[in-house]
Write a protein that binds this DNA or RNA. Structure first.
Length: 115
DNA sequence: CCCTTGACTATCT
DNA sequence: GAGATAGCCAAGG
């Protein structure tokens, strides 16, 4: 018989729900962890098919950016949820809690400018 | 069966 | 670092 994507879905749900708060995973990472490399695009569909709410907002692109258009509705929702867990999101880019202070970054995060 | 879509990724310019 | 290009793979029309 055919091995349906059911397996994939279950694996994805399990992995995504296991992502600790304040941490994020890439779509490709999730797919790989689920045992289905190169199925990054399917991860989103699998999450959408989940019967239970998942921390979908902890899943980002491989380059650590949000998958939605900056400023978009879904984007703002994901950004808010992430920041509620201490994860900074600047212009679509996700910054982990343990961010190195380089001064430049400091200014970026605090939105400071010359005076 | 062919073509389009998409919450993607890697590589090159 | 940003934009373009190619590869990827399942689902739906």
């Amino acid at each position: 018989m055919t091995i349906s994507m059911h397996q994939f879905d279950q694996a994805v749900w399990k992995i995504v729900s296991s992502i600790p708060a304040g941490q994020v995973m890439g779509y490709g990472e999730v797919a790989r962890a689920a045992g289905f490399p190169r199925h990054a695009r399917m991860v989103s569909k699998a999450m959408g098919r989940s019967p239970d709410p998942l921390p979908w907002y902890r899943v980002v692109r491989s380059n650590r950016t949000l998958a939605f258009e900056v400023g978009g509705r879904a984007y703002n929702r994901q950004k808010a949820l992430l920041e509620a867990e201490g994860v900074q999101v600047i212009n679509g880019k996700v910054i982990p809690v343990a961010v190195g202070d380089t001064g430049d970054l400091d200014r970026l995060l605090w939105g400071e400018d010359d005076s």
